[in-house]
Amino acid sequence: MAWKVRAIRGATTATHNSKDAIYRAVKELIDEIERRNQLDPAEIVSAIFTATPDLNVIFPATVARDRPQWENVPLLDLQQMQVEGSLKRCIRVLIQINTPLPQDEIIHVYLGEAKNLRPDWNLAQIAQSR
Rank of each mutant, 00 (worst) to 15 (best):
L101I: 04
E32P: 03
L78I: 15
N122R: 08
K88Q: 06
L76A: 15
D31I: 07
L87I: 08
S46I: 05
I30F: 10
A21T: 00
T12Y: 02
P41I: 00
D120F: 03
T50D: 11
T52L: 04
K27L: 05
R9Q: 12
A47V: 14
F49M: 14
N56I: 15
A14H: 05
S129K: 07
Q103S: 10
L123E: 15
D40L: 04
L101V: 05
Q38C: 05
P41A: 02
D104A: 03
A127V: 10
D40S: 05
H108C: 00
R92M: 14
H16E: 00
V109K: 01
R118P: 02
Q80N: 14
W3K: 14
P68G: 03
R89I: 00
I107A: 03
K88D: 04
N56Y: 15
A14G: 08
Q96M: 11
L75V: 07
L117G: 07
N37P: 02
Y110P: 06
Q125H: 14
R65P: 04
M1S: 09
A47M: 15
R118I: 00
D31P: 02
K27G: 08
P74D: 03
M1N: 07
N98Q: 12
L76S: 15
G112L: 00
I97L: 07
R36Y: 09
K115H: 00
A14D: 01
D54I: 02
N37C: 01
P74N: 15
A124R: 11
M81P: 14
F59D: 15
I107T: 03
Q82L: 10
Q82M: 08
I58A: 04
V45S: 02
I95K: 09
V57R: 13
H108Q: 10
N98R: 11
L29D: 02
N17I: 03
K27D: 01
D20K: 04
I22D: 13
R89K: 11
T62M: 11
I126H: 12
I106R: 01
R65K: 10
K19L: 08
A124M: 10
M81K: 14
I58M: 13
N122Q: 08
D20C: 00
I33D: 05
N98Y: 10
N72G: 01
R92A: 12
Q38S: 12
L75H: 15
E32A: 14
N56H: 15
A114W: 07
A61R: 15
Y23D: 06
Y23N: 08
A11S: 04
N98P: 03
L87T: 00
A11P: 01
E34D: 11
D77V: 09
T15Q: 03
P119Y: 07
Q125K: 02
